[in-house]
């Protein structure tokens, strides 16, 4: 409702990343727990090699991007699918500690639900 007013036309809320209103708690938590999270340049190497992603939608590159934008909803289910196999760790050209990013993201989302962030 306020969205519609602000823009003067109706816009499907979920289509818009409202960066000014986005929730940065998850991003801040993940960055704190794994500083190398900031290094990701979205090459997709991790997502290409991912063991879990071969079977079901799970995409670390996308997850990184979404967390940075404060978009947590689409991740809730996905984030539980990583097997910690470590292939992404060997592939990442930026030296992101990928597995810990997933672990931190999963923890952050759980904490968010419990109002602990």
């Amino acid at each position: 409702m306020d969205q519609a007013n602000k823009f003067g036309f109706t816009i499907n809320r979920s289509r818009l990343i409202d960066y000014d209103r986005s929730d940065r708690k998850v991003r801040d938590y993940v960055t704190l727990m794994e500083p190398s999270f900031r290094l990701c340049f979205a090459c997709g190497g991790c997502a290409a090699t991912c063991t879990a992603g071969y079977h079901k939608s799970f995409n670390l590159r996308r997850m990184n991007t979404l967390i940075r934008r404060g978009e947590i909803e689409p991740l809730r289910e996905e984030v539980t699918r990583c097997m910690l196999c470590g292939k992404c760790l060997l592939v990442c050209p930026r030296g992101v500690n990928t597995r810990n990013v997933v672990a931190a993201a999963a923890a952050a989302i759980r904490k968010l639900d419990r109002n602990e962030l």
């Binding site: 090699t49 063991t51 539980t80 196999c85 592939v91 759980r110």
Partner: peptide
Amino acid sequence: LPTQSYSYLEREDPARADVLFFAGCMTHL
């Protein structure tokens, strides 16, 4: 609490063999 879940994995029906070779995730690299 458990954070991961793999219920999405589908069962497979492999062909029979005497010797199975499992390379492992890393070996694919």
